[in-house]
């Protein structure tokens, strides 16, 4: 049994079949890449597994337990974190607050602690701040902790997303185009950060990317999705040379 396993997941939006018979299994320390042309259903798969939508058919198991149909905040608290393709930060909150709020489900002080500075709360707040700063350090943005995110450059905002996702102490991390809009130098730094968190926290990572180079270099296994169906799966080299994948990206050769 893998850490995260998806069995024969199918989803319809009304009459439109968005995802068909999708299977996935990821283990700790693995990076699994998902590629495919625009509109293939990659982000839909993320949304289905993270609980934003409930799949029409199939099952999703995290640590052997079904999480299908659970509320997103429950799924998140049970160890599944994600980042977003189009940045979804809370613009006028500081970097540190983003990371601290993601620890919501881990905070145990009660309402009395909120209004009166009980020793328990003070200690917990200190712990949270310290752990959050460690994550910001890994993401290379510790010096920006008190900056309001809307004032940050794009690349730094992507790092905030990653640090925020890490703050819920996930077992599985979903990254939706983590280097979109970055320049090559920022992309290489981001790849390093992804590798580092994977090693340090023994994470299972599920990665959507458009940049072939990044997917091929980082992933242990790669799936190619076309119109909601997996057309090729395997090691990066295998997928790269698969004619179906080349067709999907470049179009079919016309026989003359």
């Amino acid at each position: 049994m893998s850490l995260l396993q998806v069995n024969q997941m199918t989803h319809y939006f009304g009459g439109l079949r968005a995802v068909y018979n999708y299977n996935l299994s990821i283990n700790p320390g693995e990076i699994h890449g998902l590629i495919g042309p625009n509109g293939a259903g990659k982000t839909t798969i993320f949304n289905l597994i993270t609980g934003i939508y409930t799949p029409s058919e199939g099952d999703i198991l995290l640590d052997g337990k079904s999480i299908k149909g659970m509320r997103p905040h429950v799924i998140a608290a049970s160890g599944l974190a994600r980042t977003f393709q189009n940045l979804r930060l809370w613009r006028h909150m500081t970097v540190l607050e983003h990371v601290k709020l993601a620890r919501y489900s881990k905070i145990t002080y009660g309402l009395s602690g909120a209004f009166f500075n009980t020793p328990k709360r003070v200690k917990e707040e200190d712990d949270i701040t310290q752990k959050s700063m460690e994550l910001l350090d890994i993401a290379g943005i510790a010096h920006l902790a008190d900056t309001v995110v809307t004032n940050l450059p794009y690349g730094a905002q992507r790092r905030v997303e990653l640090a925020r996702a890490m703050a819920i102490e996930p077992k599985v991390l979903f990254l939706d185009e983590p280097t979109a809009g970055m320049n090559p130098e920022e992309m290489i730094q981001m790849m390093e950060i992804i590798r580092q968190v994977k090693e340090q926290f023994n994470l299972a990572i599920f990665l959507i990317e458009h940049r072939m180079r990044l997917v091929m270099e980082l992933s242990d296994r790669v799936q190619t999705l076309v119109f909601g169906e997996v057309v090729a799966e395997g090691l990066p080299e295998e997928v790269r040379n698969n004619p179906l994948v080349i067709d999907a990206y470049l179009g079919k050769e016309v026989e003359t």
């Binding site: 993270t50 905040h73 977003f84 979804r88 809370w90 613009r91 909150m93 709020l101 703050a167």
Partner: peptide, 25 residues
């Protein structure tokens, strides 16, 4: 300064990400 307060402020921005961070909206 509290986790609830931060959740309240974050929910001003969206209802999609906040639950994914483990917050019961």
């Amino acid at each position: 300064h509290t986790k609830w307060g931060m959740a309240i402020r974050a929910m001003a921005y969206d209802f999609v990400v906040v639950p994914l961070m483990g917050v019961p909206v």
